[in-house]
Nucleic acid binder design. Structure first.
Lengths: 190, 190
DNA sequence: AGGCTAACAGACAGGTCTGTCTACTGCGCC
DNA sequence: GGCGCAGTAGACAGACCTGTCTGTTAGCCT
C-alpha cells in the first residue's frame, strides 16, 4: 500500500473535493471535475467513494474536523477560564473570515442544496449538535444559570457569522459577533 | 390581458417557482417541473422569464418583499418606540420558524449554490444591505451610540436564526435570538 | 368575419451529470 | 515467471436540464 505516497489517491480525491465543494457547493461540481483536478481515474474515485454522496459526507467530516478543531483551538488560546473561552472561540470565526476564499459555512451551504432528511442533512444536524453540546458544557462550567440557553445564543451568533460569509467575508461581521458574544456572556454571568 | 384571471400565467409561474425553489433550492428544481406544477406551457414561461436565472431573480424579489414586509410588520406591532421595535422585529423570525415547511433563509440558501459575483449573489447582498440599513435607522432613532454596530449585531442574529432554519425549525432558536436581541439592545442603550 | 395576442402542447437539440464497464499498466510477492 | 492489486484511461448508458421551435386553440377587438 506504499507504492505511492501514503493513501495518495484517496487523499488527493478528498483534498480536491474539499477545495472544489467548498468553493462551488457539492452540487456545483461534477464528479468529472473532481477526477480531472485530482488526476485520478474515475474507477479509483468510485472505488474509494461508492457514490458522490459518500464523497460529500467524507467532505463534511473533513470540514467538521477542521472547524470544530479551530473552535477548540481558539477557545484554548483564550486561557483556562471557561468564561473567556466562550468569547475566545469567536476568534475562530474572525480567522475564518480573513482567510482567502472564505465562503461561509460549508454545512449550511451543503444542507441548503440537499433535501430534508437526506444523509447530508442528518450529518449537518449532528455536527451542529456536537458543537452546541460542547458550548453548553463550557457555559455550564462558566457557571451560567441557563447553560443551554447561553449555548444556543452563542451558536446562533456563530451560525449567523458563518452564514453571512457566503456573501462577503467582511471581518466587521466577525468582530460584531465577538462583541455580541461578550455582551451575552456578561449578561448571563453578571 | 384579462382573458384569464389577472396576470394569471405569470403569477402562477412565480407562485409555483416560489414554493418549489424555496423547498428544494432553485438548482434542485427543473424548469420542466415548474411548468408541470403551474400548468403552463414552456413557451409561456420563457416569454415571461427569458431564462431560468430571471425566474430565480423574480423569486428572490418576491422573497424580499415577503420577508422585509414581515420584519416591518413585526416591528410595527411592537409599538412606536424604536427600541421596542428592534426587539419586536424578531417576532417575524419566531413566526417564520413556526410556519409549515420553514426551510431557512431563501437568500442564503440560494446564494450558497450560486457562483460568487453572479446576479443572484448581487441581489442577495443588496437585500441584506437594505435590511441592515433599515435596522441601522431604527437603532439610530433608538439613540444607540454606535447604530451601525448594533444593527450589524442584530442582523447577525437574524441571519443566524434564519440560517439555522435549514436544519430544524426549532422555535427555541428564534426565542433564543429574541432574548439575545433584548440583551444586546439593553447593553447598547443602557 | 378576420386578425391579433396570449397561451397550450410537446417534440427536439445539445449539453451535463452520475455511475458502470472494459482494457491496459506497473509494482510487489510468492 | 506468474499472480494479484491499485491505479490509469476513456468509452458508454441513461437520466436530466435548459432553451428553441412548430403547430394549435381560444378569446377579444375592429
Amino acid at each position: 500500500m506504499t507504492r505511492t505516497p501514503a493513501g495518495s489517491a484517496r487523499e488527493r480525491i478528498l483534498d480536491t473535493a474539499f477545495r472544489l465543494f467548498y468553493a462551488h457547493g457539492p452540487r456545483g461540481v461534477g464528479v468529472d471535475t473532481v477526477i480531472a483536478e485530482s488526476g485520478v481515474a474515475k474507477a479509483t474515485l468510485y472505488k474509494h467513494f461508492p457514490s458522490k454522496d459518500d464523497l460529500v459526507l467524507a467532505y463534511l467530516d473533513k470540514v467538521d474536523q477542521a472547524w470544530f478543531g479551530a473552535l477548540r483551538a481558539a477557545a484554548r488560546d483564550a486561557g483556562d477560564n471557561p468564561r473567556e473561552q466562550l468569547v475566545g472561540m469567536f476568534d475562530a470565526l474572525v480567522g475564518a473570515c480573513r482567510r482567502e476564499g472564505y465562503h461561509g459555512c460549508a454545512f449550511i451551504n451543503t444542507a441548503a442544496e440537499s433535501p430534508t432528511g437526506s444523509p447530508v442533512h442528518a450529518r449537518t444536524v449532528e455536527h451542529k449538535n456536537v458543537v452546541r453540546a460542547w458550548v453548553t458544557d463550557l457555559a455550564r462550567r462558566a457557571g451560567a444559570a441557563e447553560p443551554e440557553l447561553l449555548a444556543r445564543q452563542l451558536t446562533l451568533l456563530l451560525d449567523g457569522g458563518l452564514a453571512g460569509g457566503v456573501l462577503d467575508g467582511d471581518p466587521a461581521l466577525a468582530e460584531a459577533a465577538k462583541r455580541s458574544a461578550r455582551a451575552l456572556v456578561d449578561a448571563a454571568l453578571g
